[in-house]
């Protein structure tokens, strides 16, 4: 029989990947269908939180990438229309979170950085996708919106940079909060598993 740890690795990747996939298929499709703003950021933050919790429960390097691959595969098999964008996002987020917690494990600090980077990725991917599909003028529109927001919010004049900075700060803080919650959930889960074993 092969080493049981290998099967445990794939077992954790399968169940946590399935849980992430279940949320992506149901909540993700629901949020996208309702056109709720920043749904990508919320889903990225949730994914990062789930991966951080997984890494806390099963602290083996690579398990988060495996869970991301499983989740992307589940998304591919789902009946939803658009799957390529979410699949790319899932894979990129799992790689980012794995890279962030690689050295120090899933701590609250690394969890917050991982959540923030996953949330930032979702914004970046949206911008890149829109630029690819709609062309470069979309950047001009965003610049115009940023300038207008700067005037409305009475931020210091900086060609829209202050508004973009404020927006990205909100995204980073939101993502970091998801990461911290993920670390707490992982810690609480470990404690209950130990209690159940004893």
């Amino acid at each position: 029989m092969r080493n049981l740890e290998t099967y445990r690795f794939w077992g954790y990747a399968a169940t946590f990947g399935a849980l992430w996939g279940a949320v992506e298929i149901t909540v993700g499709s629901f949020l996208h269908a309702l056109r709720i703003p920043f749904s990508g950021v919320v889903l990225a933050g949730f994914g990062a939180a789930l991966l951080i919790a997984l890494r806390r429960v099963f602290p083996v390097p690579g398990v988060m990438i495996a869970a991301g691959l499983v989740c992307a595969g589940v998304k591919l098999l789902s009946p939803a229309g658009a799957v390529v964008g979410p699949m790319v996002a899932i894979l990129a987020e799992s790689l980012l979170v794995e890279a962030t917690v690689r050295w120090r494990g899933a701590t609250i600090l690394s969890g917050s950085v991982a959540g923030a980077s996953a949330a930032l990725w979702s914004v970046l991917q949206k911008l890149v996708t829109q630029t690819l599909f709609f062309g470069m003028p979309v950047l001009g529109i965003y610049q115009g919106i940023a300038r207008q927001a700067e005037r409305t919010l009475r931020l210091p004049a900086s060609e829209g940079l202050a508004a973009v900075g404020l927006f990205l700060s909100i995204v980073v803080i939101g993502g970091a909060m998801f990461g911290v919650v993920g670390a707490w959930v992982g810690k609480a889960t470990c404690r209950r598993l130990v209690q159940a074993e004893s």
């Binding site: 794939w10 077992g11 169940t15 997984l54 099963f58 992982g186 598993l193």
Partner: peptide, 14 residues
């Protein structure tokens, strides 16, 4: 959910 997934993972591995 995390607890359920962890316990399910052990049985899936087995």
């Amino acid at each position: 959910s995390a607890l359920h997934a962890a316990m399910l993972a052990e049985s899936v591995a087995l």
